[in-house]
């Protein structure tokens, strides 16, 4: 039938145009990158053991970490308030109570050993301009293993989505639409302004954000954003949280859709019947 043929031509040309300017053009502008690596397999200097000496880890953490970091889980607050530590270090050292839960263990061990390397920020931090947190390369793998074991042992078994965001992201990034202000202005320290993340979930694709958070250099080579080493579950929580703030009406949208589309299908059906009735008289 002629009208179907016309419709076919329309659909084909529209589809060619659409594929060209949308999926194809975007695949050229944003080349596909390898998927997320939540095991951080590029970090393989330390062989982590199944078990560690928690007691020894506790001693090591208290003598090496709590000079800068808070550890509320063990009843220790940070030695300085946020404003002071931000002005001293350029960034606020996080409380490490949840570190054992939200960060991958392999990443955490390598971060302790060499923060700039694990965070993939060696282009920013080096001998002349050292990372605010010093290297612990002088420690044995055994000792680092024990510290990680201790951090895992004191970490809570569950954290809220928002809490992961606050721990992992909000020291640099604000979330205005949820009234979260970044702990410190790291513009000077980072060399660029970390964007507000309120609607980042709409500004970037899901795939982009996932691979970017997992390894920022992969999507934005040379960026000052560190690889933070979130575990797969923790990153999923961050993504959930970003979506709950930046696309807060998603559920409403998806629930309303079938009603509107269903109504229109019924309308089209009646419109068709009416058209048949009217045109029967003239054909």
């Amino acid at each position: 039938m002629k009208e179907w043929k016309i419709l076919g031509v329309l659909v084909i040309f529209t589809a060619i145009l659409y594929i060209g300017v949308e999926p194809y053009a975007h695949s050229v502008m944003h080349p596909h990158v390898s998927p997320e690596d939540y095991k951080f397999t590029d970090l393989n200097d330390i062989k982590l053991k199944e078990q560690g000496n928690v007691k020894n880890g506790e001693t090591l953490v208290q003598s090496n970490c709590t000079g800068c970091h808070g550890l509320k889980a063990a009843g220790m607050s940070a030695p300085m308030d946020k404003a002071t530590s931000a002005s001293v270090y350029g960034v606020v050292p996080p409380d490490i109570s949840t570190a054992g839960l939200i960060y991958d263990k392999n990443y955490l061990a390598h971060f302790i050993k060499n923060p700039a390397k694990a965070a993939k920020l060696e282009h920013k931090f080096n001998a002349e301009n050292p990372h605010p947190m010093p290297n612990y390369e002088w420690m044995s793998d055994e000792e680092i293993n024990d510290m990680v074991a201790y951090l895992v042992s004191i970490a809570p078994s569950h954290v809220e989505d928002k809490k992961v965001f606050e721990e992992a992201c909000s020291r640099c990034h604000s979330m205005r639409y949820d009234k979260i202000k970044a702990d410190s202005d790291v513009t000077k320290y980072m060399g660029s302004y970390p964007p507000d993340l309120s609607i980042m979930i709409r500004a970037r694709s899901y795939e982009f954000l996932n691979t970017f958070i997992n390894n920022p250099q992969k999507q934005l080579h040379g960026t000052a954003m560190p690889r933070v080493g979130l575990s797969e579950e923790a990153q999923a929580k961050v993504m959930n949280y970003l979506e709950s703030i930046g696309d807060s009406k998603k559920q409403e949208r998806e629930e309303l859709a079938p009603w509107v589309l269903g109504y229109l299908v019924i309308l089209a059906l009646f419109a068709y019947l009416w058209k048949i009735k009217i045109w029967r008289e003239v054909h």
Partner: peptide, 9 residues
Amino acid sequence: AKDFFVLST
């Protein structure tokens, strides 16, 4: 009548 059908589709 025809337009209305095309429109609703």
